[in-house]
Amino acid sequence: MDHAIEVRNISKSYGSVVALDNVDLDVQRGSVMGLLGPNGAGKTTLVRILTTLLRPSSGSATVLGYDVVRHARHLRSYIGLAGQSAAVDDLLTGRENIHMAGRLYHMPKRQVQKRAQELLEQFDLVDAADRSVKGYSGGMRRRLDLAASLVANPPMIFLDEPTTGLDPRSRLELWDVIRNLVSEGTTVLLTTQYLEEADQLADEITVIDLGKVIAQGTADELKHQAGSEFIEITVRDVEDIRRAASVLENFAENNECDIDEEARKTSIMVQDGASIMVQVVRSLDTEDIAVANMAVRQPTLDDVFLALTGRTAEEAATESEQEQN
């Protein structure tokens, strides 16, 4: 048995609102599973079920071999949860927050103290360790929240939108922390609405929309589903853009060409970016079109979401918000 998580036919509904609809999910031990979807897709509901906070309406799930309903009590000793709202106490110091979490995991005092010091060092919080959390930055709070959820060395950790609302630098720092965690063998289930984040961190990605799993696979596999690579050309003079587009069109696999006049950018979808790029450059040269920038771009997960659902992640989020209202 090397699945850390096995979810079978889990559904959850609140009255007539269906939050999860027959979800199946397997997560390999020691891997990172990215649960990707817009706001309101049902990611948080799934995490709450797997962390024993919520009972499913039907279906079953095991985490580390424990049933999330029947063995909830034991399971809680082996999991860590870092939620959307960093659940750290403002009036306690960083060290005290970790200490409290450790004691509530029922760890012996001395071990908690040792472990707290380790975590503070690992998460670069030593200088702030004995100051009250009130003065922490958003990034520090998230790191502390994560540290507190790791105090008992849980083999399985759930991160519910760990970087939502963080500035880019803090986000990169937190990503490093998560990567370190994985290298030590912890299984991670991470939810995110940032497509880039799942791409960066997850071994496997499950795309979830309106309570249903709509795609599963590695980032590369998902990108292949979205199709191919993109060639993007930015012209120097906006007047050239139509001509450039007509040149590019000849190379496009679907004979379509996107034009963004404001950005002076035009792009096409191709199978083999690098070799076609050479030909594109030659043709543009003969047409005497001055180019400001050119690039072969891998499809992003935004493209994936668009290909899977026919709408962008942003549109999906607005939709489900309207539905909830």
């Binding site: 906070l53 034991h74 979490a101 995991y105």
Partner: peptide, 13 residues
């Protein structure tokens, strides 16, 4: 309101 209770409830306490 602040999500503390979620953390507590996920602990074996």
């Amino acid at each position: 309101q602040k999500g503390f209770v979620d953390r507590y409830r996920s602990l074996p306490m």
